[in-house]
């Protein structure tokens, strides 16, 4: 990240706009899906999309720094949430809490891997770079 104040201002603006969009999308999903399902849906779908973006960046990097800052650091990181997930886990009935914790991890990791595979399918080149 550049120390140039103008570049920092642009980055902060992109992250702020992305954060507003991501948090709003999560809030909408939370009002549409009851209970723990809203957070789970946001966390799993966000992991899929971020997995795709990160692995795409490692390959072709067609998006560039600014688009990636907006979408990854801004939108997707704010769309998903760890704090709500943990507070929900702690406050749930023990069996529900443990299932929610393990289910979120299993689905989140699987979704990130799926995102990686989708990135490989979009751009099959540079496998050495990714496995390095």
């Amino acid at each position: 990240m550049s120390r140039d104040p103008r570049a920092l201002a642009v980055t902060v603006a992109l992250v702020a706009v992305g954060g507003a969009v991501g948090a709003s999308a999560r809030h909408l999903l939370g009002t549409a899906l009851p209970g723990l399902w809203g957070t789970l849906a946001a966390n799993v779908s966000g992991s899929l999309l971020l997995g795709f973006l990160l692995y795409e960046a490692l390959r072709a990097d067609r998006l560039g720094d600014r688009t990636r800052t907006l979408l990854a650091t801004g939108v997707l990181s704010s769309y998903t949430t760890y704090s709500t997930f943990v507070v929900e886990t702690v406050r749930a009935e023990p069996l529900v809490g443990v299932s929610y914790l393990l289910g979120s991890y299993a689905l989140g990791f699987a979704a990130a891997l799926l995102g990686r595979d989708l990135a490989a399918r979009v751009d099959p080149r540079d496998d050495r770079e990714v496995s390095a």
């Binding site: 991501g22 948090a23 992991s47 997995g51 998903t80 949430t81 704090s83 709500t84 990791f109």
Partner: peptide, 13 residues
């Protein structure tokens, strides 16, 4: 604020 400050997607990826 807390929802956007923390992140699950970065954690899993």
């Amino acid at each position: 604020a807390c929802g956007a400050f923390t992140t699950f997607s970065s954690f899993s990826v």
